[in-house]
Design a protein around this nucleic acid. Sequence first.
DNA 1: CGATGGGGTTAACGGGGGGTTAACGTGCCT
DNA 2: AGGCACGTTAACCCCCCGTTAACCCCATCG
Lengths: 228, 228
Amino acid sequence: MLNLLLIEDDLDLAETLVEYLAIEGLRCDHASNGMSGLHFIHQQHYDVILLDINLPKLDGLSLCQQIRTEGIDKPVLMLTARDQLEDKLEGFRAGTDDYLVKPFELSELVVRCHALARRRSGQIKRLTCGDLEMNLTDRTALRDGHLLHLSPTSWRLLEKLLRASPEAVSRRALEESLWGDNIPDSNSLKVHIFNLRKAVNSGFGSPLIHTVPGFGFVLRETKHETPH
Amino acid sequence: MLNLLLIEDDLDLAETLVEYLAIEGLRCDHASNGMSGLHFIHQQHYDVILLDINLPKLDGLSLCQQIRTEGIDKPVLMLTARDQLEDKLEGFRAGTDDYLVKPFELSELVVRCHALARRRSGQIKRLTCGDLEMNLTDRTALRDGHLLHLSPTSWRLLEKLLRASPEAVSRRALEESLWGDNIPDSNSLKVHIFNLRKAVNSGFGSPLIHTVPGFGFVLRETKHETPH
DNA sequence: CGATGGGGTTAACGGGGGGTTAACGTGCCT
DNA sequence: AGGCACGTTAACCCCCCGTTAACCCCATCG
């Protein structure tokens, strides 16, 4: 879920926006002047910052410039009634990422927020299954929030299984994805699966890696038990 | 210098645009239909893609969707005469990053291009990660307020890692950013990483530079460790 | 019953990835 | 010349990790 910060001195407009954004499933804090907005930004993480230009205490352009020189690289979307070309150019010069002229359609604001957030943090490609999450870009794997320690091959195995999930993967396919054409004739795969199981299930309740007898393995949250 | 691709079937408009962009110092290739545009994208690196929606062969929306599903994450800016809300929403749904309605001011297009391309391409003058901060203008690096002494290559290494942070960087990419095409076949990178570590971690508690086994390195604040 | 075979577990070994150190050369500064 | 900073290279060490071969469990079947 996205986490936004709205910096806007028109309280009516702010309230409307926050409410609407909530309906659309976006959390949104609100600051009513520039200094307060700056404070919020330093305090907490936001995916996108919605910034009015006419603000008391510290105007939007200065605020934007300031956080940029501070090295804060958060996406900024300026919301303002100023529709002249020179205003826009000034906004971008100050370091904004997008510029929307009031009055605007709420739904356009929402999709632009998503676009901005995706470009910055959404470039991260992640695979998940239950409480297991694999982050391809920073190459970390987490189970229930805890960092897992995976060897290179364990990593590749898990990636393959996760990509296929909830489908099962045959031994053959797994071996091929690890070794290509020349597959060792030993039980190497078994050992790697074993290690992977140990790493993924270490201390956690339900196992995620299940074996499919006579075929291969699956990664899925709950395996249907059929009492017999 | 930015490298753009314009996909637009109106040849007059295209020519005008390309010329104007050249004046502003932006290189711009031109494709006159969707299929050709796709070909260009696969062929070469672009910083931003300018995309018309009404296109012969393959329309802009489909093209955008397609490259997104291919995992191509380049910034896309849609240029179109369609100004209705629903058109815009459709554009963003297809995965565009920005949407500009014709006719538009050329200078606005330029600043939006820069905004889209800015992220990893250098305009940011100050990079930080935790208590580490790097000031590109006066070429100083501080850790917890203390000045770090970095050799030129250590500096370049750190900059590369910092720009990518919190993403991991492969050994290959690091070597290429240091030496370009002719990479030494020795363990030079190892030594430089070692020196950089010494400089960055000198006397401080948590290390910031982590190795990703079998891949490369990351710069990030320490994550939660597993309870064994 | 014992044989068989698929799957799980464990430990030993060996190579290599990665870390560390020092020597050498080169350019620069005095 | 001498000193210094820096990049490169080679040598060395350690321990992780992949491989392998055992062994174990247990189901199925003759």
